[in-house]
Amino acid sequence: MIRRIFPLLSLVLLFVVSERLLAQEVVSTEMLAQNVSSYCAQNYASTVVSPQPTSWRYAPDASSLENKHSLQVGGGLPGLTVMAMLDMLFSDPYYEDKIGSSNSLRGQLSDARYYWTKERAVTSLTLDYGCRVRDWLSLGVKGAVGFTTRARRHVATNDLLYRDSRVAASLLFNMRFDWLHRRSFMMYSSFGLGVASIFDYHHGTIIPMFDATYVGFTAGRKFYYFLELGAGASGTFRTGIGCRF
């Protein structure tokens, strides 16, 4: 229970911290110019020319654009797409053949003699490379992998009969649209298309795959943290760390 709640609490904390970072950016250059002008007028009215307020217009913060490449690694909490991919092999008739029909005596005994341990899954680990080709556009490659594992054990002795593991790996061409720049904060959306391979020790299949980030933001400059909300191969809620170089 704690393991499930803790990530959510952490996400809330991350939002709070992000709000603080945003609040610091509200002090604009225009306000600074006005304050300096007032101070100069009071103390150096005869000798110093008052600075003129600059006409502010939106422009990307250069500090977030000075690095062309980015590399980030992260993880995602369960997403429907990844779970659906991993579930594809659950319904594989091979497993029913292997243990026999549940109507047969051997099938019934097998089901009664062995039990499945709790299934554990890491739904998404991601590695994302991006190369900035415009101020607002990055192109890159994203890799995502999710896996699940469970064991078949004897009910009395707890001896391991076999372990059942499945992997879903995706490779995607990714386009990222940066639509808000600040000195240490950035917001973006992205979309990727590619393929996913789902396999275990005797099965494998390749299917088309997508990944979409509805909204994501980074906090930090050269090294940064990111948090995303999306769908697809990377999961629903993604977070991680990255660097620009």
């Binding site: 779970m83 709790k118 890491v122 977070t239």
Partner: peptide, 13 residues
Amino acid sequence: VVSLMSFVGCAVE
């Protein structure tokens, strides 16, 4: 901590 939490496997069934 937030980043590392996402690496932790979770029981799904």
